[in-house]
Amino acid sequence: MPSITREEVAHLARLARIELSDAELDHLAPQLDQIITLVGQVSQVAADDIPPTSHALPLTNVMREDENVPCLTPEQALSGAPAAEAQRFRVPRILEED
């Protein structure tokens, strides 16, 4: 039994907003199955009482003072925008057409 099915890969691709073609799914699903088998080896390690590490170093309480620093100009902010209108980022309709 594969560690991940083609349908699961398709679901994950939707969740990650990647419009995979059928051909890509055919190609990627078995590769991911192999990779997941590889990474699944972590489960062989007995680590129930081991604390997880989320950060490489144990730093805490890094904060800045509540002060303003110069912003980008609106021109700079919008300089990379695929589309802009009225000094705002123009994006496609958010809801699907009914």
Partner: peptide, 26 residues
């Protein structure tokens, strides 16, 4: 829709390895 455009753009803009790792991480 924005969602569709995002999905099409990521499909076209990312290569195989990036897609593999994003899906694996997701």
């Amino acid at each position: 829709s924005a969602e569709k455009v995002t999905s099409l753009s990521r499909e076209a803009g990312f290569g195989d390895e990036v897609k593999r790792r994003i899906i694996l991480g997701t």
